[in-house]
Design a protein around this nucleic acid. Structure first.
Lengths: 340, 340
DNA sequence: GGAAACAAGGAATCCGTTTTCCGTACCGTA
DNA sequence: TACGGTACGGAAAACGGATTCCTTGTTTCC
C-alpha cells in the first residue's frame, strides 16, 4: 500500500506522531522509557510513512557500518557462489548488508577490492575461493573469516567442507551394498579435493580390510577425463567377461557423468555391474546423468551461513580461531541404488 | 610491501607530509592550486601509509554514497549471475561498490531488500531476474536499470538479450550450410525465451522461402525433454531410411545436449545427418556435448556491463528510457561444422 | 504533600573528508 | 622601497540524520 516516497526522515515521523525525534528513536529501538501508547503511535506513524532509518547516520552513532565484504577470489563460480549466497542470506537476518567484490584470480584486483572494503569501513570480511587449497591471508584491521578456501595461517578462522566425512560416507555406502572391488578416479592431482577424497575413501575401505583396485587415477575435472578413466579401469574388457571392479568412486559429478556415459557405451550396466558415485551434488550433472548419480552434497550454502555466523560473532567480540569442518550429506540415487 | 595498518586518516598523511588536511585533500583530488612539489610529497606520504579516504565521510560531503544495489529476484542463478558479475565489474571502474541483495523469488524478501537499499542511500539499483519475461517495476527514489528481466513499464530503462538477433544468426547459419528441413525445440511454452526464439527462427527461414518442419515443440528446460523431443521429431524412423529433418534448432544448450545424446543413441550422425544448435553457450553443456555444440552466446556479462553504464549515466543526470537490446554472438562448433 | 519514578523534549554528539574562504609570502613593476 | 596581484596553503565550517545524554515537566504512590 504505502509506497516509499522521496526520503522519509525521523523528523517526518516525529511530526506525524506529534512527538520529538528523540522519542521516535526510543520508540523504534525499544530504549528509554515511554508510554506504550506513545510507542504504538510512533510505530504506526513510521509504518505509514515507510520510514527506514538512514544507515549512514546510524553507523555514525554506532561506530559500525553494518556492512560486511564478500571477497571472492574466484569470479563467484560454481563453488564460491553458493557460499556467497548462504552468507548473504545469514547476514540479512542480522540487519547487515553485503558488499560484493570479485577478484577473478587477479591479485591486483583483489588488493584493490580489499582497499575499497577497508575504505568503506566494513565490519568484517568473508573470503571465498575456487578450491579447498589454503590461500594467503589478507591483512586488514577487521575480522575475517575464510570460507571454502582456508587461510594458510591456522590461527585465522576458516570454514571448509568436510571432504573426509563425505567420502567416508560414500565408502560406507558402497560397502553396505556389498561392493568390495572399488576404483577411485580423481581430478587434478595437485588439488586437495582430489587427494583428500582419495585418502578418505582408502581409509574407510581399509577399516573393513578392503583395498582400492589399482592406483588412484588423477587427471582433470572434466567429463572427458571421466570417460577416459573408465577406459583405463576397464582395460580391454569385453562384454561377458568378468569385470575388474564392481564400483567406481569419482571425485566429482562431472567425472562421474562422463564415466556413466562411457560405461553405457561399453555395455556395462550401472548400477547392476558397476556402481558409480559422484561428488558435489551439482544438479545439472547429477540429475541429468543416466542413471542419476549417488553423490555427496557439500551443503555449501550452510557452509557460507556458518562463515557468516562466525564473522558476526567475531564482530561481536567473540572471535573464532582455527579451521572448522562443515558437514556434507550423502545423496543416494540410481547410480548405486538400483531404483531410479 | 606497505601493509594497511589499523586505520590511516587524512590527518596522518598531513602530519607525515608536513601540511594541513585540506592540502592533502587538494593534492589527492587534483583540486585547488598547489605546487607540484607539494602535491608529489603528499602523494608519496599517502602511498607510504596506504591511505584510503573514508568512504562514509566522503559520501557525507559528496551527498552520494558511491554505492549501487544489485537486486537479484533470482538467487543469482545461472542467468542473473553473469549479469551481476558484468555489472559489478563495470562499477568497480567507476569507483563504485556493489551491494548484493538476492530475493529468491520471495516478494517479501524483495521488499525488505529494496528498503534496505533505500536506507543505505544507494545511488542507483540494477534489477535482474531469472527470465526475460517482463517484471513489475520497483518504486524507489533513485535511478533503476532493469537487466535481463525488463520492466513492465516501457518508460523504465531496461537491457535485455537480443534473442531475435541470436536465433536469426542460427537460422542464417543453418541455411548457409544448405539445411532446409529444420525443426525447432523450445522449453516452457509460457516463456518469452521459447516463443521469441521460435518466431525469430521461423521469420529468418521464411525470408528464403523455407518453413519449419512440423509444429514447434515446447516442453521444459531439461536434457530429458531434449531427448524426448528428438523422438517426437524422428518418429518411428529407423536407420537407413531418409530422415524427416536435416537440422534441429534447440532453444537451450541443455535441450541440445539431450538431443545429441538421443540422436547418437538412435544411430543418427551429428552433424552429417542432422545439424544441431543450442543456445546460451553454457560451457559445461556446450563443450561436454558430443559433438560440442554450435550455440549462441548471449554475452550476459556485457549485458550487465551495459546496464551498469546506463545506471552510471542516469546517476550522472542522463537517464535512459526504454528497452535496449544487447547483442549475442554465434559460436560455431562441431554440432554443425563437421570438424571438431 | 513530598519524593520517587516516569515521559518526553532540547541539544550535543558521532565521524573524517571536502570546501569555502582568508592570510601570507613572493614576485614584478612603479 | 612600496604596492598590487597572484600563487600557495591553512583554519574552520559544512556535510547528514539518528542517537543519547541531560534536563524539565508530570504522574503516582505512600
Amino acid at each position: 500500500m504505502a509506497e516509499t516516497p522521496g526520503v522519509v526522515r525521523i523528523t517526518d515521523v516525529a511530526a506525524l506522531a506529534g512527538v520529538s525525534p528523540s522519542t521516535v528513536s526510543k520508540a523504534l529501538n525499544d530504549t528509554g522509557s515511554l508510554r506504550p501508547a506513545t510507542r504504538a503511535r510512533v510505530r504506526e506513524a513510521a509504518e505509514r510513512l515507510g520510514f527506514v532509518p538512514d544507515a549512514q547516520a546510524r553507523s555514525l552513532s554506532a561506530r559500525r557500518s553494518f556492512t560486511v565484504g564478500l571477497l571472492s577470489t574466484d569470479s563467484a563460480g560454481r563453488f564460491s557462489l553458493p557460499v556467497v549466497l548462504g552468507a548473504e542470506n545469514a547476514l540479512v537476518g542480522g540487519q547487515i548488508s553485503a558488499l560484493l567484490a570479485t577478484a577473478r584470480h587477479d591479485p591486483v584486483r583483489e588488493q584493490h577490492h580489499v582497499r575499497s572494503l577497508v575504505a568503506r569501513r566494513v565490519d568484517g570480511i568473508i573470503v571465498t575461493g575456487r578450491t579447498t587449497d589454503p590461500r594467503r591471508p589478507i591483512q586488514v584491521p577487521m575480522p575475517v573469516v575464510y570460507a571454502y578456501s582456508p587461510s594458510q595461517d591456522p590461527q585465522d578462522a576458516s570454514v571448509v567442507p568436510d571432504d573426509t566425512a563425505g567420502m567416508a560416507a560414500v565408502g560406507r555406502h558402497l560397502l553396505s551394498l556389498g561392493r568390495t572391488r572399488v576404483a577411485y578416479v580423481g581430478g587434478r592431482a595437485d588439488q586437495a579435493a582430489s587427494t583428500l577424497r582419495h585418502a578418505a575413501l582408502a581409509a574407510t575401505l581399509a577399516e573393513r580390510g578392503v583395498t582400492l583396485v589399482g592406483e588412484p587415477l588423477f587427471g582433470e575435472w572434466s567429463e572427458r577425463w571421466g570417460r577416459l578413466a573408465v577406459d583405463l579401469v576397464l582395460g580391454d574388457h569385453s562384454p561377458g567377461e568378468p569385470l575388474p571392479v564392481d564400483a567406481i568412486a569419482f571425485a566429482s559429478d562431472q567425472l562421474a557423468r562422463g564415466g556413466c556415459d562411457r560405461l553405457r557405451d561399453r555395455g556395462v550396466r550401472v548400477p547392476q555391474d558397476v556402481a558409480v558415485t559422484g561428488y558435489d551434488d551439482w544438479d545439472v550433472m547429477a540429475l541429468a546423468s543416466r542413471p542419476p548419480l549417488t553423490t555427496v552434497d557439500p551443503q555449501l550454502d550452510r557452509l557460507g551461513q556458518r562463515a557468516a555466523e562466525l564473522l558476526l560473532a567475531a564482530i561481536d567480540g567473540r572471535p573464532a580461531h582455527g579451521t572448522e569442518l562443515s558437514p556434507p550429506r550423502l545423496v543416494v540415487r540410481g547410480s548405486t541404488a538400483g531404483d531410479t
